[in-house]
Simulated assay, not measured.
Amino acid sequence: MAETVFHLPDLGEGLIEAKVLEWHVAEGELVERNAPLVEVETSKSAVEIPSPQTGRVVRRHAAEDDSLRVGDPLVTFEVDQAGIVGTVPREGRPARRVRLRPPEE
């Protein structure tokens, strides 16, 4: 098992902070990826943030009515495997070339 911290994401439109309105998960609870995690309020609207992964909530880093800045820790998860999503590109020439013009006849 590994622990990973999820930080308050950039909510767009130049917003730099948000206030926690309501938690949808408790510490110790198992949460599925994309399940509702927390509802926050910005100066423009209320936004529900989904869980970025499946795991057990080890710690909520803010209480309801607390304000957080973008990038502040929001939740610590205990997950089965922490790793990189996707693949790391290999160096070298690409295996396939794309023609920008049809071949001349």
Rank of each mutant, 00 (worst) to 15 (best):
G28Q: 14
G28P: 12
E29Q: 15
L30A: 15
V31E: 05
E32P: 06
E32K: 15
R33L: 11
R33W: 01
A35Q: 14
P36N: 09
P36Q: 05
P36E: 08
L37A: 04
V38N: 10
V38F: 03
V38P: 06
E39G: 03
V40P: 04
V40L: 03
V40I: 07
E41I: 01
E41D: 10
T42Q: 12
T42C: 10
T42H: 11
S43F: 00
K44D: 00
K44C: 04
V47T: 14
V47C: 02
E48P: 00
I49K: 03
I49T: 04
P50D: 03
P52T: 07
P52G: 06
P52H: 04
Q53V: 14
Q53C: 15
T54W: 00
T54F: 02
G55S: 07
V57K: 03
V57M: 07
V57W: 04
V58T: 14
V58P: 07
R59Y: 06
R59K: 14
R60N: 08
R60E: 04
R60W: 00
H61W: 12
H61F: 10
H61E: 01
A63Q: 11
A63D: 13
E64M: 11
D65Y: 08
D65C: 08
D65L: 12
S67I: 12
S67T: 14
S67C: 09
L68F: 01
L68Y: 01
L68C: 00
R69C: 13
R69V: 01
V70P: 05
P73D: 04
P73G: 03
P73M: 05
P73N: 03
P73Y: 05
P73L: 04
L74S: 06
L74Y: 09
L74W: 07
V75E: 12
V75G: 11
T76R: 06
T76Q: 12
F77C: 02
E78P: 02
E78D: 15
E78V: 08
V79W: 02
V79M: 08
Q81C: 11
